[in-house]
Each structure stands twice: as structure tokens, then as C-alpha cells.
Design a binder for these strands. Structure first.
Length: 561
RNA sequence: GUCCCAGUAGCUCAGUUGGAUAGAGCGGUCCCCUCCUAAGGGACAGGCCAGGGGUUCGAAUCCUCUCUGGGACACCA
């Protein structure tokens, strides 16, 4: 509808340019907006305000000329000029009908578009180290990342979900040493407990499982405990497999699936780290100093150069990261989004700098990053520190068990990811019935309930009659609902291009609110067959859009609550 | 010290990319089930949009400085 109005305005502008009211060289940016106040019409444009200066006219006069030059359209009932020079558009019943009809035809596809045109996009998210269960911060990453994927898919992209396993570093050594210490019966209080050891209770479970000789399976590996507390290599393998298995269960409980699990260790074993380093040296962006190899990241906007290879010969962590991203590029992903915690933000500059220094024709500013800020967990009125080493811990699975998957996903995805989030567990648990996600689901269930009642009364919804009678929907609340239904496709588009899945959640809350208001004020199952069928048709349209939007969030749309 | 993010109702947060009188939920006060599910609706109260300057027809939104909170700035991952 916005598009249609924009075209009408464009046509009027041409007329005004031809008759000399506007100079020929104007490059107007036509903006059509949803109005906040319905007395301002259904849509409004500020075009006369932005063009008043080049036209050397006052905005209201210009607006009048524009309105006069607007072509005739069935979609418009009337226009008016208001305030400093806004043009307000009131849409006609015909345009309402055609929108509802479109939704009924497209059903689950309504709101989807093909902007991506089947191009490949890759989203890397969660990517937790296999050193402990997933916590709420990972949960935020999982919720935001998965919604982003769903959004990209809804915009016509072919999305690959990828999880990067950091299985080759010092953290894994610490993990193995911690498990070994537990195998030997040590506790964190013992003097010989590893300095940076993990203290969480899950380490005890892990050690016991190893000493029992259990076999653990994860997505891509399997390992049996050797029961030998001196065999650090075996403990390392077992611990990684064990914790990956735990994380698999966490993700499954959260209904998040990955297409690719990428192992950091494979970058070493396949020589990719080494060859990336060679290229960087050959391209002349490195130098030796104090026994270490440095990358001149300052050439690419970093505030100081970074060490690539330490004095002891090991690589710093961003080197495999650069090799990893080169690999993503070589796999043909021109669009890559990395969803990470904000505490990793300093890596962005380095990875991008490294990629530029490879001279592999990778565009500047590639890849995209979506960062989520930290989650503060409150329990019993106090902040819970989510430190793996300290052992005080809120796992994602605990959270899902306490407040439910739908509510957890919604809560973590419904807020702008770059603002801090406070997750009050007591609130989420004790008032789970007041969680906004139920508000939206309830609207969906209510539509379904109307249809149950309909058949109890031995009546049927006649879709054809309903569509033909849509012009009976003349109430403000009904028109308002339709306008909001019409917004959905642009919300889907906008949320994807700005990488902001929370927009979907906000939209759904608004739509659900409008429907609840309508439901309370007007009865759907009225005597008049025409009006009844028209209202049922509108209700079906609402149900489709609610279900489509909830699906983008990975939240279920129950028929009954 | 440098960089990133944030600061909007008592609390948790939105604010459609610069529009008209700043909005929800929770909490507070008060109404609405003879009625398709009250997990709902309606009404009231609650605001110096952290603060100062600037940009323009117009600023919570853009620029700049200041203040406050969080995070990042290792030859840790």
C-alpha cells in the first residue's frame, strides 16, 4: 500500500515538474509513513515539507498543488493537508479487501519476499567453547542468531547455520586438567588444584563418567572413558566429547539446529592456519620483533599492531579466526553474519584487518557482526554471576525447564540485542502467565477458539462470502487491524536488513493488542451472515500473520491455551 | 588514556531510521464475564526522553562536549 501511494506521489511530482512548479533537478526521496494518530489518516507523507525549499514555496501551498496533481485511484478514499504541510491519505474499502484477500491466498507465505534471490548467507552463532554447559548468555546468542536465520530465509536467502568449536586452545587444557584433578579426588581447596581450573559441579559429573568408562556421543564424535586418571590426552578427548554432547542437548531443548559444526582444530590439522600466515608474510604486512611475529593491523584502522605468533611459537587466537573467515569466503558466502557476545567486539577490527591483508578480494567491512550485550541474571533479588570457573551457574537448560522454551526464546530475542538485558528468573517463573509471549499466543488461540465455537453452533465459514463482504468491515478497529496486517511484510524486510529480530516481537505484540481490543468490543459470530463471514475472514488473516511472525521467532502458535 | 554499547514512567523495555499530542508490559487506583477463552478489555495516575550546545520547517532520534553505568583494549581464548 505504501508502494502504491509512493507511486501516486511520484506521478504527481512529474506533473509538477512538467508545468514548472518544481525545478527539474529535484531528487525527491518519497517517504510514506504509517500514522500514529488515525485522525491523520491511514498513511502520511512529508513530501511537501522536504520539497518546499527547492520549490521556493511554502509547504502547504505545495501540498495543495501536489494533491491536485494526484492521479485517480481506487485505493484512496480521500486526502487532506494538515499541520505544517503533511499530506494525509485515507485508504478505501477496496484496498482493505484486496489486502485481506492477499493474506488468505498467501497464508504461510504472506510477508515473505525474494530479496535474497536464493543467494547464500551464513550465520555463525553461539560458538561456545566446549568447556561447560551453555549459559543464558549463549541462550541470547542462540535466540537472536536463530531468529536472524529465520528472517534471512523469509527474505529469500539460503542460510547456513554454523557453530564454531574452539577446541584447540588453552581453555581446553584447563578443562582437561580440572577433570583430571577431580578424577584423582582433588577439590578446588587442595593446594595442587590447577591454577585456572574449572570449579563447577559439572566437572565432578564429568570425572565420574570418565572413571566409569562411559561412552559419550556428540554431533560428530564419540569417545569412551579409559578410567585412567593419568591419561591426560584421553581425559581431554572425553571431556570435549562429553561437554559437546551436553551442549547438543541444550540446543535441542531450545530447538536450535546447526547445519555445520566447524572445528578450530581442523584449521591446524589441514594447514589452513599455516597457509594464511604465509600469505600474510608474502603480502608484506608482517614483521618480527622481540622474537614474535606481528601483523600490521594499524594499516587497516587498528590502534596498534597485533602479535600473530608468540615467542613460544604458538599463534594468538585471532590467527585461526582469520583463516576460518577466509575459509567462509572461499566457500562462497558473500554474506556472513557473526552473532557474538559484545565482549568479543575487539576481535572485529583484527579479523577484518587480517582478511584485508590477505588480499583475497574480500570487501572491506566483511563480515557483518551482530553483537549482543551481556545478560544480567537476577535470582532472589540478587545478581547471579555466571562464571564457569567459580561454579555459580545458570544454565540455559535450567532456564528452559523453569520458564519454558517459548517464553525463554521470546524474552531473549524480543529486546534489541545491543542493549543490556536483565533476566529476572523469579519474575519469569512466578509470573510466567503474564509473560508477553502468552499475550501473543493467546490472540492466536482466540481466533482458533472462535472457529471451534462456530462449528459447535453448526455454522461454517464461507470464505467466498466473507471476501465478497469485506466492505462491511467499516469500524475503526477493523480498519486499524487491516492497516497493521499490511505493515507485516515491511517489518519482515526491515528487521532482516537492520539485523534486528526484536522488531518482529514488537510488531506481534502490537498486532495481538489490536486484536484483543477488537475481540472485546465486537462479537465475531453475529447473526448477519455477510458480516459474520467478513469478520471470520479478517480473523483468519490475523491468525496467519500471528502464526507467521511467531514462526520467525521460533515460538509455537498454539490453537488452545 | 583509547574504542564500543547503553542512559526514555517507580521497575523491565519499545519508539516504524528526522515527523504531528513520546508508547507498551509489570507495579498503583478504579471499572468490565447472562456475552466467540478474563492468559483478555477499558479508564485514571505516573515523563526536563541523563545534561549543555549545535544542525532545520521539525530532534528522544543526526553532530559535538560533559556526566553516569556496562564491556573491550595481553606474546589469554
Amino acid at each position: 500500500m505504501k508502494q502504491i501511494i509512493a507511486e501516486l506521489i511520484e506521478s504527481a511530482l512529474h506533473t509538477l515538474i512538467e508545468n514548472g512548479t518544481l525545478p527539474e533537478d529535484v531528487q525527491p526521496k518519497i517517504m510514506v509513513e504509517n500514522t500514529r494518530d488515525k485522525s491523520h489518516g491511514d498513511y502520511a507523507s512529508n513530501i511537501a515539507l522536504t520539497l518546499a525549499k527547492p520549490a521556493r514555496s511554502n509547504p502547504r501551498q505545495l501540498a495543495e498543488k501536489l494533491v491536485a496533481a494526484l492521479p485517480q485511484s481506487d485505493n484512496l478514499k480521500r486526502t487532506e493537508i494538515a499541520g505544517p504541510g503533511f499530506i494525509n491519505f485515507f485508504i478505501s474499502g477496496a484496498s482493505t479487501s484486496s489486502l485481506v484477500k492477499t493474506i488468505l491466498e498467501e497464508k504461510g507465505n504472506y510477508g515473505r519476499n525474494n530479496d535474497g534471490a536464493g543467494r547464500k548467507a551464513q550465520v555463525e552463532f553461539v560458538s561456545a567453547n566446549p568447556t561447560g554447559p551453555l549459559h543464558i548468555g549463549h541462550g541470547r546468542g542462540a535466540a537472536v542468531g536463530d531468529c536472524l536465520c529465520r528472517l534471512m530465509e523469509a527474505n529469500g536467502w539460503e542460510v547456513t547455520r554454523e557453530f564454531y568449536y574452539n577446541d584447540a586452545g588453552q581453555q581446553i587444557n584447563n578443562l582437561a586438567l580440572s577433570v583430571q584433578a577431580r578424577c584423582k579426588g582433588l577439590t578446588p581447596d587442595d593446594p595442587s588444584w590447577p591454577a585456572d581450573g574449572y570449579r563447577g559441579g559439572y566437572i565432578i559429573d564429568l570425572a565420574e563418567s570418565f572413571m566409569r568408562g562411559d561412552t559419550v556421543k556428540s554431533e560428530d564424535q564419540s569417545f569412551t572413558g579409559t578410567k585412567d586418571a593419568e591419561d591426560l590426552e584421553a581425559i581431554r578427548h572425553f571431556a570435549v566429547a562429553y561437554l559437546r554432547h551436553e551442549q547438543d542437548l541444550d540446543l535441542k531443548a531450545f530447538a536450535v539446529d546447526f547445519d555445520v559444526y566447524f572445528l578450530e582444530s581442523s584449521l591446524y590439522s589441514e594447514g589452513k592456519v599455516e597457509s594464511a600466515v604465509q600469505t600474510l608474510i608474502e603480502n608484506g604486512f608482517t614483521y618480527e620483533q622481540e622474537g614474535a611475529l606481528w601483523l600490521r593491523t594499524t594499516d587497516f584502522g587498528d590502534d596498534k599492531d597485533r602479535v600473530m605468533r608468540k615467542k613460544d611459537g604458538g599463534y594468538t587466537y585471532f590467527v585461526p579466526d582469520v583463516a576460518y573467515h577466509l575459509n567462509k569466503w572461499q566457500r562462497g558466502f558473500n554474506t556472513v553474519i557473526n552473532e557474538q557476545g559484545a565482549d568479543h567486539h575487539s576481535t572485529i577490527t583484527r579479523v577484518r584487518a587480517g582478511l584485508q591483508a590477505l588480499k583475497a578480494d574480500i570487501p572491506q567491512g566483511w563480515p557483518d557482526y551482530v553483537l549482543h550485550q551481556m545478560v544480567t541474571v537476577m535470582k532472589g533479588g540478587e545478581e547471579v554471576k555466571i562464571s564457569k570457573r567459580a561454579g555459580s551457574y545458570v544454565t540455559l537448560r535450567d532456564l528452559i525447564e523453569e520458564v519454558g522454551r517459548d517464553a525463554t526464546r521470546y524474552f531473549l530475542a524480543a529486546r534489541k540485542s545491543d542493549s543490556h538485558l536483565t533476566f529476572d528468573i523469579d519474575l519469569a517463573r512466578s509470573e510466567s502467565a503474564d509473560n508477553p509471549v502468552y499475550y501473543i499466543q493467546y490472540a492466536h488461540a482466540r481466533v482458533c477458539s472462535i472457529f471451534r465455537k462456530l462449528s459447535e453452533n453448526n455454522l461454517e465459514w464461507d470464505e467466498a462470502t466473507g471476501i465478497a463482504a469485506l466492505d462491511h468491515l467499516e469500524l475503526e478497529s477493523e480498519k486499524n487491524l487491516v492497516i497493521n496486517l499490511g505493515r507485516y511484510p515491511e517489518v519482515v524486510k526491515n528487521a532482516a536488513s537492520t539485523r534486528e529480530p526484536h522488531q518482529i516481537a514488537n510488531y506481534l505484540r502490537d498486532l495481538a493488542g489490536d486484536f484483543h481490543t477488537y475481540y472485546n468490543s465486537e462479537k465475531t459470530l453475529v447473526e448477519s451472515a455477510d458480516l459474520r463471514n467478513a469478520r471470520l475472514t479478517l480473523a483468519v488473516a490475523v491468525r496467519h500473520v500471528l502464526a507467521n511472525g511467531l514462526d520467525l521467532l521460533g515460538v509455537s502458535a498454539p490453537e488452545q491455551m
